[in-house]
């Protein structure tokens, strides 16, 4: 099975990648494609919060995407499946869905949602669109709820 692990550079997407590894059977997964999508018309086309990579003086968003993909791919080092790193460009949800079709994916892993107000107010997120239109099952990894004190 080919699994797509999407990253938007958020720490939650790193958590999602680790979550897949925590339960999936590496002998059943043949390939993992780590996909980052650069949004050319956004204020920040890609921001990498997953690694300690030095901000390049040229300010390349491609470099930021590359470093996020490298960090996520490193999660699966030595796990078994063949890991591919892919950087795409365009609208995040569309590109993830296209990638899923193109690689004939059996599962798409995405991170979703913050906690609190923004989650309630802002709908139409990437994860929602991927869930609705992906050609295969989708694993949406949400942040753990805050512990009750």
């Amino acid at each position: 099975m080919h699994v797509i692990v999407a990253t938007d550079g958020s720490r939650q997407s790193l958590a999602a990648a680790k979550h897949l590894k925590s339960f999936a059977d590496p002998t059943k997964v043949t390939d993992i494609s780590v996909v980052a999508v650069i949004r050319p018309l956004a204020s920040v086309a890609f921001a990498d919060d997953t690694s300690e990579g030095k901000w390049p003086s040229d300010g390349s968003f491609r470099d930021a995407a590359q470093s996020a993909v490298d960090t996520i791919a490193a999660v699966y080092d030595g796990w078994g499946p063949k890991v591919h790193k892919r950087i795409r460009s365009g609208s995040a949800a569309n590109e993830i869905i296209k990638a899923a079709k193109q690689y004939d994916a059996g599962l798409v892993v995405v991170a979703a949602g913050g906690r609190g107000l923004s989650d309630a107010v802002l709908v139409g997120s990437t994860a929602q669109r991927v869930q609705h239109y992906a050609p295969c099952p989708v694993l949406v990894v949400r942040p753990a709820p805050r512990k009750k004190k």
Partner: peptide, 16 residues
């Protein structure tokens, strides 16, 4: 078998 190939040489998804 982590792929370390030059991303430019990746298939059409590599550096789109």
């Amino acid at each position: 078998d982590t792929s370390t190939a030059d991303p430019d040489l990746d298939d059409e998804g590599g550096l789109k």
